[in-house]
C-alpha cells in the first residue's frame, strides 16, 4: 500500500497554507509529522482524509486518486481530528456504537469492536458513563478509540496527545508503536516526546512546506558535531541566546547547563553532545521544542 502526496498545495484566500508538498508513505509503520503551530499539518491531514480538496496536486492510494475512491478510501481510514466533538449525553459505548454505524459495521461486529477499542485505550470501566463527565484526557482516548473502530489500514491522528498526562502519554506511545506494526500510522504533533521512540520516519514541516523527511536516526546523525553542552552563568544567558540557538536549559543547584547548537565550539567550556530530537526541532524550526 502506497499513499502518495503528489505536489499538493492548498490556498486559503491569498495565503498558501500548504505548498508543493510531495511525499510517499508506504506500508506499515509510524510516520511522525512534526512542525510548529501554524505549519500546515492539520490542513495537510484534512486533505489526506479527503475532507478538504487540494488547490493543486493530487493524493493517491496505490496510484488511484483518493477523491475518486470515495467510500472505498474512507472504509480503510481511521481519523482523529485535532478538535474532538462528542454528544455529551451519550455514554462512551453508545457513542462508539453510533460511530460504528457510520463506519458501516454490522451490529455484531460493532459490539465486539467497541469492547476491544475501549479496552485498548483503557476506558473499559467507563463504557456506561456519560461523555459529559469525562476529563480531557479521557475524551482524547475516546477519540483515538473511535478512529480504530473499523480496524483501519491507514490511521491518521492529529495532535492526539493534547491533554494527556505523562502516564497516559507513555501508554499512548506504546499503543501507537503496536498499532504501527500492522498499519500505516501518520501522527501529527508538535510534541517531541510523542515521536522519540516509535517513529519509522520523521516528516518535518514548516510554513506549509516539506523541510525534510528521513529516519530519526539519520536526521540526528546529520546533526552530529553540532550539539554542545556547556555550563553558563545566568548573566550570560541573554548574550548566548542572541549568538546561538539554545535548544534547552537545565537548572540544578550547581548552576545552569545549556544545550547549544553550533557548527563550531561556541564557548571554551562547551563539550560535544549526542543530538536529540529537541535539538533537531530547534535547528529546523528555530524555537524551543515542547516535550
Amino acid at each position: 500500500m502506497i499513499l502518495t502526496i503528489d505536489n499538493v498545495s492548498k490556498k486559503y484566500k491569498d495565503k498558501w497554507v500548504v505548498e508543493s508538498f510531495s511525499l510517499e508513505l508506504s506500508n506499515q509503520g509510524v510516520y511522525g509529522l512534526l512542525g510548529p503551530n501554524g505549519a500546515g499539518k492539520t490542513t495537510l491531514l484534512r486533505m489526506l482524509v479527503d475532507i478538504s480538496e487540494p488547490t493543486s496536486g493530487q493524493i493517491k492510494l496505490d496510484g488511484k486518486p483518493i477523491q475518486h475512491m470515495g467510500e472505498q478510501y474512507r472504509s480503510i481510514l481511521g481519523y482523529m481530528p485535532q478538535r474532538l466533538g462528542f454528544y455529551n449525553r451519550f455514554s462512551a459505548s453508545k457513542f462508539l456504537m453510533y460511530m460504528c454505524s457510520l463506519k458501516g459495521l454490522s451490529g455484531s461486529q460493532a459490539k465486539v469492536r467497541v469492547q476491544e477499542t475501549l479496552a485498548l485505550v483503557g476506558l473499559e470501566n467507563k463504557a456506561r458513563d456519560k461523555i459529559g463527565t469525562f476529563s480531557g484526557g479521557m475524551k482524547q482516548r475516546l477519540g483515538i478509540a473511535q478512529a480504530l473502530l473499523n480496524d483501519p489500514q491507514i490511521l491518521i491522528l492529529d495532535e492526539p496527545t493534547v491533554g494527556l498526562d505523562p502516564k497516559e502519554r507513555i501508554r499512548f506511545r506504546n499503543m501507537i508503536g503496536e498499532l504501527g506494526r500492522e498499519r500505516l500510522v501518520l501522527l501529527s504533533t508538535h510534541i517531541i516526546s510523542d515521536l522519540e521512540f516509535s517513529c519509522k520516519r520523521l516528516i518535518l514541516m514548516n510554513e506549509g512546506k516539506l523541510i525534510l523527511h528521513d529516519t530519526p536516526k539519520a536526521i540526528m546523525t546529520s546533526m552530529q558535531d553540532r550539539v554542545w553542552k556547556a555550563p553558563i552563568l545566568e548573566s550570560e544567558l541573554t548574550e548566548l541566546n542572541a549568538r546561538f540557538k539554545v535548544s534547552s536549559l537545565s537548572y540544578s543547584p550547581e548552576g545552569i547547563t545549556a544545550r547549544i547548537l553550533s557548527k563550531e565550539k561556541p564557548i571554551p567550556e562547551a563539550v560535544p553532545e549526542s543530538p536529540r530530537l529537541e535539538d533537531v526541532y530547534m535547528h529546523f524550526f528555530g524555537e524551543e521544542a515542547e516535550s
Binding site: 475532507i51 474512507r74 481519523y79 466533538g85 454505524s101 457510520l102 458501516g104 473511535q146
Partner: peptide, 8 residues
C-alpha cells in the same frame, strides 16, 4: 470532521 471521514 469525524463524521465526514466515515463511510456514511
Amino acid at each position: 470532521e469525524m463524521e465526514l471521514t466515515c463511510k456514511i
